[in-house]
Design a protein around this nucleic acid. Sequence first.
DNA 1: CAAACATGCAACCAAACGGTTGCATTTTTT
DNA 2: AAAAAATGCAACCGTTTGGTTGCATGTTTG
Lengths: 105, 105
Amino acid sequence: MSQAAIAQIFKALGDPVRLQIVQRLSNGAALCLGELSKDLGISRQGARKQIQALVSAKVVQLHPTGREVKVQLDAATLAQSKAFITALEAQWDERLQALKQFTEQ
Amino acid sequence: MSQAAIAQIFKALGDPVRLQIVQRLSNGAALCLGELSKDLGISRQGARKQIQALVSAKVVQLHPTGREVKVQLDAATLAQSKAFITALEAQWDERLQALKQFTEQ
DNA sequence: CAAACATGCAACCAAACGGTTGCATTTTTT
DNA sequence: AAAAAATGCAACCGTTTGGTTGCATGTTTG
């Protein structure tokens, strides 16, 4: 996992509209583009652009079926972003631990 | 934790330069602005802007001491972003579980 | 076949972003 | 007191972003 790829995932999650889309997808079944575009306060094409950003970051996958396109969360990508933060925290804790040992000497 | 605040955290992490800064801070002790600005491939003032973005998102805290300013990771904010992803995954898994039960009937 | 539906494509626009340069200010060091 | 170090502030600039509108295309449904 390159630094750039991780950054792209976070960037994709770093917008209220896209975050709402992701949350809605985690709540229930895979939704098609039209359904997902509702209640976001922006136009269908506007929503489509945001969804495309999620696709580019692989946060979400598209599955065209007939005249509609289903949108599905990519659990693996979410897991990677979580793993990144976990790794940061691990280094952080390690350092705090070392600092504690040093001050206790 | 508002949706907007979470989005701001992810947005702050969604840039290669800022991600590198965060990583460097997790590796070792708190660094001052000047040190942090080195080896990023951009000017000091450019780096300063990126650090300010991290401050606004509360990913990082500033501690002025004399003529220099120390930069420190905010572990609590990182924990919140991780918690958000964990919650997403939980809902996701719950749904998969429900789906499995349904198909097994 | 015609109407309705779900989507795609492209041009356009204001605002935000990522970066620069130049200069002023405060704190150390010598 | 003078030089050096660390930072702040502000203007500027090209590119990206987040959104719009208008219209074309493929797919169901009646």
